[in-house]
């Protein structure tokens, strides 16, 4: 199991165009973070290209948030090199962080202050932020996330979704080069989720690199240009989303009454025959599934089947869905929605 994961990772990484360091917004080499004897992150090599929307996927507890904490200097790595926006971390923390907006493990606010009060407070904590434009920037950020009407309300009275929006507003108080969003749609309704997606797209269109962690595959698939997949503290795959999708095993489905013969032909061609799921096939035929089509042109397979006398009543080539790909990378128990 472990070996196949590593192999998949190497495959996907090699296919990605080799990026130079200056093109990367986030770069880690051999990043390790341990808590006592338990290792949360086991030597990951992240490469997040500038200008990309990078989906950081993985099941709950796979080390996503820990990685983000280390990237932002909240926790220190046990070993490994980290560069954020081209500068060495955590040495350059003070000069890098003003260019980074972040939402880490849910929103955290002073419940006894208003939405505006909270943002004023957090903006004041940044010595690089101009105090003369503070009120205006806070106002704009609240407007962008649709919280203007609740700006004066105490955060105590906010719903989880409103707090999440306030957290996003905080990340956007200043124009940022990099946004790190940890589970940004947590607690949001479908409408809010779509708004976040649009917001991420518009930010990316403006040139901001967005690093978004999620355990929801559908969410990542809809807004990300690049993906990294975490499983049990390891980065098992990363690269442009299209490459990951095509790295999955495509398969053929043959509709035929001659099941045994078809299976023999597929085996001879190097495909792995199996039973196709959901065989509600017409004319009393059975579907035969052949995985491992890579290297074969579909019509060759059909020709071979026909030449052996297999009565082919249906033939389809199916690409692996991203979902199957992720389940194969991260194992069962992966929380997939959509």
């Amino acid at each position: 199991m472990n070996e196949s994961r590593t192999a998949a990772s190497v495959g996907a990484t090699e296919r990605a165009a080799p990026a130079r360091s200056s093109d990367l917004a986030i770069e880690t080499h051999g990043l390790v973070k341990r808590f006592g004897h338990r290792s949360a992150v086991e030597g990951i090599d992240l490469a997040v290209p500038r200008g990309s929307v990078f989906g950081f996927l993985g099941p709950n507890g796979s080390g996503k948030t820990t990685t983000i904490r280390v990237l932002l200097g909240l926790a220190s790595a046990n070993s490994g090199d980290i560069r954020v926006l081209g500068r060495e971390m955590p040495q350059a923390l003070a000069s890098v962080l003003p260019g980074v907006g972040a939402l880490v493990e849910g929103p955290g606010f002073y419940t006894f202050l208003s939405g505006t009060g909270n943002l004023m407070r957090l903006d004041a904590a940044d010595p690089h932020a101009s105090s003369s434009t503070r009120r205006q920037r806070v106002h704009d950020a609240l407007e962008r996330v649709g919280l203007s009407h609740a700006a004066g309300k105490k955060v105590r009275a906010y719903s989880l979704g409103m707090k999440q929006r306030l957290g996003l507003a905080n990340a956007m108080l200043r124009p940022r080069e990099l946004l790190v969003l940890d589970e940004p749609t947590n607690g949001l309704d479908p409408q809010g989720t779509r708004e976040v997606r649009n917001l991420v797209r518009s930010l990316a269109a403006g040139g901001t690199t967005v690093f978004v962690s999620s355990h929801l595959l559908a969410e990542v698939e809809q807004m990300c240009s690049h993906v990294g997949v975490m499983s049990a503290g390891r980065l098992v795959a990363q690269g442009p989303i299209e490459e990951l999708r095509s790295a999955g095993q495509a398969h053929v489905v043959v509709q035929t009454p001659d099941v045994n013969l078809a299976s023999q032909v597929l085996t001879r061609l190097g495909l792995v025959p199996g039973e196709a799921p959901g065989t509600g096939s017409p004319w009393g035929t059975t579907a035969v599934l052949g995985t491992g089509i890579n290297g074969h042109v579909p019509e060759e397979i059909v020709a071979a089947l026909v030449a052996e006398g297999v009565r082919v009543r249906g033939f389809t080539v199916e690409n692996a869905s991203l979902e199957e790909r992720f389940v194969s990378l991260t194992g069962e128990g992966f929380d997939v929605v959509g």
Binding site: H128, S130, P175, L199, G206
Partner: peptide
């Protein structure tokens, strides 16, 4: 959420 594009400029920085 407004879809106003937002470039990585240094606005608001001192």
């Amino acid at each position: 959420l407004s879809a106003k594009a937002n470039g990585p400029t240094r606005e608001g920085a001192v």
